[in-house]
Design a binder for these strands. Structure first.
Lengths: 256, 256
DNA sequence: TTGCTCCTCACGTCACGTGAGGTGGC
DNA sequence: TTGCTCCTCACGTCACGTGAGGTGGC
């Protein structure tokens, strides 16, 4: 029996390749070929009497195709579909390209967010975790709600203001919000004269931020609408307070 | 017993949040919070007597931090490390940015490969799978071995040649290779006059491809060295034939 | 009694990597 | 007898999604 077995194994080497040789030739691992066999993507045409996988020439050709399509980033399932039901190849690749480009856009966004966050803290000492968290949320919100041009404008304005200017603006806002809160707690009507004056200040601060640009104003408004006042203002303004201020702003509009 | 239980549950709502409310407030799913609990990333400070998770204010704050860091694309493990052993945050982000940029470069490469492959077949009828596989391998090899400038040059040359020109070049190569194969099979010495003439033709075809550019020639040579003649020539030239031609080219050099 | 919230398993995802334990041919 | 190739399980990866089956408070 032994010689016959030997013959069989020897003869087969003519046209059939064993797994190790195939792996080496195509640059994939033996384990990968096991996997492709298991999922039915590439099942060797034959087995030796001792159970070894024997890959035929068509098997080898198919593997080259698999490897090539894998380079394009297609999933094994898509590859199987492409090879077995050969749908429109061009169309498959076109769709895949579209996916890749979407992914690229997301990555670029992430890159911008990371870069901006870094820039903001690079010269500072270590920021606290909460400062950091805030910065990330602000950056993400800006990416979500402003166009590239608007983002460039915001960047310019920040540079023009400088660190001190930004801090001053933050203080201005904090003070104004505190004052409004007090009035509300005291039961002042939103249409009262004192509140109209505060609403005017509110408007001025917003205009300082938008630079009087209407599109910027709309984006800001959309952000408050979609994220809610609390998130959009980084926790500084509760929804109820926003509504109160909204009434005062409306009254101011009418008065003008 | 019942009233006591009720009291406990009611009292706790003052400062502690249940999982549903927390999920809604932060925009994550309940399942995600379960997961963070399971891996120890965010373990609620308390449980109600009936086993419900009760998140304290510090728990909530931590979740906000987790969500923010997750937006940057950090893994949960990295987030845990950042929050618990607070290493240099800036440095962590800087390294992450570097990784993201590496990924971007790979994606851009893939995008180029896909675009080129598409361009090559878009106006044609459906190419065969093998033509397609070949094109992918060629594109990948070009991405691997040529600089962006060289790739632009190649692109220009292709456009200048036009489809017919490219096909002609391919025919020229195929014929020359066939002729050389025959000489070799006939036992012609690589230094024989007939072979020197063929080597001269070989050189001319290479120069046609490189445009006489030295850098391009070096890249081409590196490609043949690193990938092997068979892969680099898309199966047209076996290593033995390449060696034979190499000897003829060397002899030609000396003769000149 | 009927919804709603919450609980704990537990499997599945994608493409393999990495042992573990064993067999067959030089 | 010693390497080397090959074989078949089977667990692990990452961050959850998605049921399955059950409980407690309005």
């Amino acid at each position: 029996v032994a010689p016959v077995t030997l013959m069989a194994e020897n003869e087969s080497t003519a046209n059939e390749v064993r797994i190790g040789a195939l792996a080496q030739a195509t640059g994939v691992t033996v384990r990968t070929l096991h996997h492709y066999d298991a999922i039915g993507l590439l099942v060797p045409d034959a087995r030796s009497p001792t159970g070894r996988r024997l890959y035929s020439q068509p098997n080898v050709r198919r593997l080259y195709q698999i490897v090539a399509l894998r380079r394009l980033g297609l999933s094994l399932e898509e590859i199987a579909g492409t090879l077995d039901q050969n749908p429109d190849l061009i169309e498959t690749v076109r769709q895949h390209l579209a996916r890749v480009e979407q992914g690229l856009e997301l990555q670029r966004r992430l890159q911008r967010t990371l870069t901006q966050v870094l820039e903001q803290f690079e010269r500072d000492d270590q920021p606290t975790l909460d400062q950091f968290t805030q910065a990330i949320e602000v950056m993400t919100m800006i990416e979500d709600h402003y166009t590239p041009e608007q983002r460039a404008q915001l960047e310019q304005r920040r540079e023009a203001l400088g660190e001190e200017g930004i801090r001053q603006a933050e203080r201005d806002w904090a003070m104004l919000i505190e004052t409004v809160k007090t009035e509300r707690a005291n039961g002042t009507e939103p249409t009262a004269a004192r509140m109209l004056e505060l609403a005017r200040q509110w408007q001025t601060l917003i205009e300082q931020f938008t630079g009087g640009d209407e599109g910027m104003g709309r984006s800001l408004a959309a952000m408050y609408r979609e994220q809610g006042p609390k998130a959009a203002s980084r926790g500084m303004v509760e929804p109820e307070l926003m509504q109160y201020v909204g009434q005062a702003l409306a009254a101011l509009q009418e008065a003008q």
